[in-house]
């Protein structure tokens, strides 16, 4: 410290940090993609109540939701090479970025599996029965009827999760990843203007969050376009409606999943 606030550094660092958005977004994107796969895999045994696997997925979700992401990061960073050595795979040369992505993917997968369960559970049971009544098979009913509706319901929860993952990636610096936060800590070592660097860092995160939120809102409107009245409601009191749906979506997670 000992340096006085200088606004010009904020702009300077803002521009210098911009290229590192790519790494942050890479972590977010990759972990979300892998997390979606894991989430779906983990949600299925619980939705269909498969005896032993159901227990496993319960413990998995409980562990990853019950421990801090920072602890998980360190756990994977230090633990994975040792575990893999036991089955004679040497990963000491693999960059830390892969471990970070893997840890975030497992973390995200646990949360995603809950939102998938909640969203599928929120689709009206009568919809599935109607699908069966017109002669669809189980897969057809799921793919054509349940999934499109569940997607629309899941979008607000999913959007929150994406933004949460974006904010969580700020912890990757602790394993030496040069993403936005990591860079913002090394940039001002010469000038000692740390506060200005962190201010521009916060601005960048803020802009990305807002952009993501707008994007998901547009996607949600598109997915729910067939529900005319709900859409009109949403526009009338958007803030409050969004909030209600957000929280009711989260509360839904505590109910047991559906058995389509």
């Amino acid at each position: 410290m000992g340096t006085s606030f200088d606004i010009s550094y904020v702009f300077d660092y803002f521009v210098k940090l911009l290229p590192y958005i790519r790494i942050t977004l890479t972590i977010v994107g990759c972990s979300l993609l892998i997390g979606l796969g894991i989430g779906l895999l983990v949600a299925l045994p619980r939705m269909y109540r498969i005896p032993v696997l159901q227990r496993f997925s319960q413990v998995y979700v409980s562990f990853f939701r019950g421990t801090p992401i920072l602890i998980q990061l360190f756990l994977f960073y230090y633990g994975m090479p040792e575990m893999l050595k036991l089955i004679h795979i040497d990963v000491t040369k693999v960059p830390a970025l892969y471990f970070v992505i893997f840890a975030y993917a497992l973390h995200t997968g646990a949360f995603l599996s809950e939102s998938i369960r909640g969203a599928v559970g929120a689709v009206d049971r009568g919809q599935v029965e109607a699908a069966y009544a017109v002669g669809m098979t189980g897969y057809q009913a799921f793919g054509r009827i349940v999934l499109p509706q569940a997607l629309g319901i899941a979008i607000p929860v999913f959007a929150n999760l994406v933004i949460a993952v974006l904010k969580d990636t700020s912890l990757a610096f602790s394993l030496g990843i040069m993403e936005l936060t990591g860079k913002s800590q090394t940039l001002p070592t010469m000038s000692q203007h740390f506060f200005e660097a962190y201010l521009s860092l916060a601005l960048i995160y803020f802009i990305i969050s807002i952009a993501l939120e707008k994007l998901f809102f547009a996607v949600e409107r598109r997915l729910l376009r067939y529900e005319g009245d709900r859409d009109r409601d949403g526009r009338a009191a958007s803030g409050r409606k969004w909030l209600n749906r957000r929280f009711s979506g989260r509360l839904e997670l505590q109910k047991e999943g559906a058995r389509p």
Binding site: M1, S4, F5, I163, L166, K167, D168, T169, S170, L171, T181, F194, F195, Y198, L199, L201, A202, Y205, F206, S209, I210, E213
Partner: peptide
Amino acid sequence: VTFIRGTPMLTHLLLILFGLPMLIDA
């Protein structure tokens, strides 16, 4: 609310950690 919810908690901690002493001292 919008700003805090749109930025990571770590940045709040860092901003307070580096900004508040500057402010208090000034």
